[in-house]
């Protein structure tokens, strides 16, 4: 464990908690893409099946359980409890265009052709594009609530910190996982224009509104 991975995990946890609290406190999921949250729940489900097969550490197991629990709770709040506030008209990204290619790629490019490894690879590839429905929804509505931008900032920051973690681990431990690194680079690049808007607008107290 190194500081970059730890702050990355905490940034990820912060994003998940911010979103869950935003929906719970405001009793509304306006501006939130339910499709992205479904994809994240799928990412955690397919990645953390090793909860049943191997124990790494209390930290590892507890964080995985928290991530899975919060992501399912978020999906429940969006599609059940606060369904009336779900903005389905703007959450129209065709997720099958993500899941099918990612599913195919995870069969073609993986470290080992075993069920757990293919599911892990699927979750890594899927996570790199899972935010697209949310970014697409913001581009359609032309704006985002400030709390939603903080959620996206921490979510994007987490994988950027993981990239530094992988540089650190390559240099000090000789650890290198090409699949995770390539997917992580793609994932972080997708946030770049959002990061620019976040720094130039939200951090200056303005509302995030895209040129419609």
């Amino acid at each position: 464990m190194n500081i970059f991975r730890l702050t990355g995990d905490l940034s990820h946890l912060a994003a998940i908690i911010i979103l869950l609290l935003k929906i719970w406190k405001t009793r509304s999921c306006a501006g939130i893409s339910g499709k992205s949250q479904l994809l994240f729940a799928l990412v955690f489900t397919t990645r953390y099946l090793d909860l049943f097969t191997s124990f790494i550490s209390l930290y590892n197991t507890s964080m995985k359980l928290i991530y899975v629990a919060c992501s399912y709770a978020t999906v429940y709040l969006i599609y059940m409890k606060f369904k009336a506030t779900y903005d389905g008209n703007h959450d129209t990204f065709r997720v099958e265009f993500l899941v099918v290619p990612v599913g195919g790629l995870s069969f073609l490019v993986n470290h080992d052709f075993s069920p757990l490894e293919i599911l892990w690879t699927f979750s890594i590839y899927l996570e790199s594009v899972a935010i697209l429905p949310q970014l697409f929804m913001i581009s359609k509505t032309g704006e985002a609530e400030t709390i939603t931008t903080h959620y996206l900032f921490f979510l994007g920051l987490y994988r950027a910190l993981y990239l530094i973690n992988w540089i650190w681990r390559y240099y000090f431990e000789g650890f290198f996982d090409l699949i995770a690194v390539v997917a992580g680079v793609v994932q972080t690049i997708l946030y770049c224009d959002f990061f620019y808007l976040y720094v130039t607008k939200v951090l200056k107290g303005k509302k995030l509104s895209l040129p419609a």
């Binding site: 991975r5 995990d9 990820h12 790494i56 590892n60 995985k64 470290h111 650890f175 995770a180």
Partner: peptide
């Protein structure tokens, strides 16, 4: 083959 490193990352 690529020896499978234990997946210790989240």
């Amino acid at each position: 083959a690529f020896e499978l490193m234990e997946k210790d990352e989240l």
